[in-house]
Design a binder for these strands. Structure first.
Lengths: 155, 155
DNA sequence: CTTGAAAATCTTCCACA
DNA sequence: TGTGGAAGATTTTCAAG
């Protein structure tokens, strides 16, 4: 799908705040509401906008601690991978999970209330699947965390 | 702020999909629309719900490549930190940025279209600030990535 | 908390330039 | 593409049980 500069501005706005009404967005991009509404519709249908969600304050829901977990494994069978993947995906404290290139095989971001809770997640991780090496790093300070993707590479 | 089990179910729903109308959410949690609407309002005012955003398809906006960047530094002055922080926060390709405990001082998640684009971000990172050691790992596969926080620790 | 309903606001779509 | 407006939904507020 082709996106012009107005589409990009609309996406930029919606990535910051999806509660704005169509008329207000239209005004900000210099359109009247109908064509703006049509563009947003098109962006959703094309799957550029995948969904709209509420973001919560991590402190206020008591998961203020972020831990990055690096996993190295020796087993590389498909069967093992499927089982490990399913285990990890089912843990709600794991909010990100990647297969990596380089030294580390997998990288996870885990959010928990405290170290004790992390330890329980850790035990759940290593239970069941053979992991060669698991190393945890704690985030001391969150300097930036955004869901807004950069839009400079579109088109 | 105290959250009961109905609030938690409402948050769970809104974390998945913030487009649902109040009446539908009310039905799902077994309430009529008025009290459900009031709860959502309260959750926003209390700052539990911080905002509502549109999520985009990373492939479709041409930033399908995720890179994790580990930064080690020798300079630890406040002045240096402020300057580094400002530099990094201003780079839109950096979507996450943490100060870490342990071996690595900072960890960044960067999204770009390809390796060449990453190299430009990399150069921008090391320009200006003295970095002792910068190591990049590429994500080969995104196994899980969610904005939904676990709600098992509330209350 | 529930129901029911009124008022204000938005979204959605139509006809037309 | 764009504009303006009509029709239909929704949100938001209120009174009363």
């Amino acid at each position: 799908m082709k996106l012009d500069s107005i589409d990009i501005r609309i996406l930029d706005i919606l990535q910051q705040n999806a509660e704005l009404q169509t008329a207000e967005i239209a005004q900000q991009v210099g359109l009247s509401t109908t064509p703006c509404w049509r563009r947003i519709q098109r962006l959703k249908e094309a799957g550029v906008i995948t969904r709209q969600v509420a973001l919560l304050d991590a402190q206020k829901v008591n998961v203020g601690v972020t831990v990055f977990v690096s996993v190295r494994t020796s087993t590389h069978s498909q069967e093992w991978f499927e089982s490990f993947k399913a285990t990890v995906q089912a843990i709600p404290e794991v909010v990100e999970f990647y297969r990596m290139s380089g030294e580390v095989d997998y990288l996870l971001r885990v959010v928990v209330p405290d170290i004790a809770a992390y330890d329980r997640v850790y035990k759940r991780l290593i239970a069941g699947t053979q992991l060669h090496d698991v190393s945890s790093s704690f985030a001391m300070e969150e300097l930036k965390l955004t869901t807004a993707l950069p839009l400079g590479y579109v088109g």
